[in-house]
Design a protein around this nucleic acid. Structure first.
Length: 235
DNA sequence: CCAGACGTTGTT
DNA sequence: GTCTGG
DNA sequence: CCAGACGTTGTT
DNA sequence: GTCTGG
């Protein structure tokens, strides 16, 4: 399931891929995007696709603090329509979460080995997501999102018992208000195994402060001794 | 009526 | 906010 | 997802 | 064990 991911294209490339205007905010390519961070999502606003930065971890409108969002980084597709935290967002606040790949931790005898899961085509894809707007007691407004999970395909099942709901050709359908509830839910199915791939990455990934391309570098595969400080100057 | 939950994953 | 449980 | 905290009082 | 923060 999506708990960390990559989005290592430029804002220009992402905007073009998802058919939105180039936003006026800045974005640095990401190799270790983690929950609670501001990350780009695509929504429909006044009938047009736009890119917004939102906090990963959906905060329901009734929440008393942002902390709730830390528990809402994923939403099960099977129960979305009933859950008080998600059902309203499902009706009117669906989003695309641009992703180049996401990480799973494969549990082995030698410990946890992080894997980067991506498409064989190397194309940027999207997780189906939901977003919310939350007002803090002091009036701050926070936009947040969650990534939807589904059962795994045969390929992912060897690694984990859930997977993110991946969208490629059906991204317009997910955002469209012309579909009915069942049609939206039908989109949230396992992505075809034959189009997916996985490869091991550096165990240093576990440090949420590290967000550098070298996490994907062969030289650092499995290394746990290097320190974050070292990584910053090593290349 | 009021109070309390509202979520997922993984592990036991 | 809205539903469930007591 | 993983890592790290998990607490209060009083003093600076 | 469970929650928070990143």
């Amino acid at each position: 399931m999506p708990g960390r991911y990559t989005l290592f294209h430029t804002l220009e490339e992402i905007a073009e891929k998802f058919n939105v205007k180039l936003p006026d905010f800045d974005f640095q390519p990401r190799y270790n995007a983690t929950p609670s961070q501001l990350l780009p999502v695509i929504i429909i606003e006044r009938g047009e696709r736009v890119m917004k930065m939102m906090r990963w971890g959906l905060i329901p409108p009734w929440a008393e603090s942002v902390a709730i969002g830390n528990k809402m980084i994923n939403a099960r597709s099977e129960t979305l329509a009933e859950k008080p935290s998600f059902r309203n967002a499902l009706k009117s606040r669906r989003c695309l979460i641009p992703v180049d790949g996401y990480y799973e931790w494969l549990v082995t005898e030698k410990g946890k080995q992080p894997l980067l899961i991506s498409l064989k085509s190397k194309e940027t894809f999207a997780f189906a997501g939901l977003w919310e707007i939350w007002k803090s007691p002091v009036g701050d407004v926070i936009y947040s999102f969650t990534a939807i999970t589904t059962e795994p395909n045969e390929f992912i099942a060897r690694i984990h018992h859930r997977m993110g709901a991946i969208l490629t050709a059906n991204q317009d359908d997910w955002l469209s208000d012309k579909l009915i509830l069942k049609q939206h839910l039908d989109i949230l199915k396992p992505y075809p195994s034959e189009e997916m791939t996985a490869r091991p990455v550096s165990k240093m990934l576990k440090d949420v402060r590290l967000d550098v391309p070298e996490l994907l570098d062969e030289k650092f595969m499995g290394r746990t001794d290097a320190q974050p400080k070292e990584m910053g100057t090593l290349f």
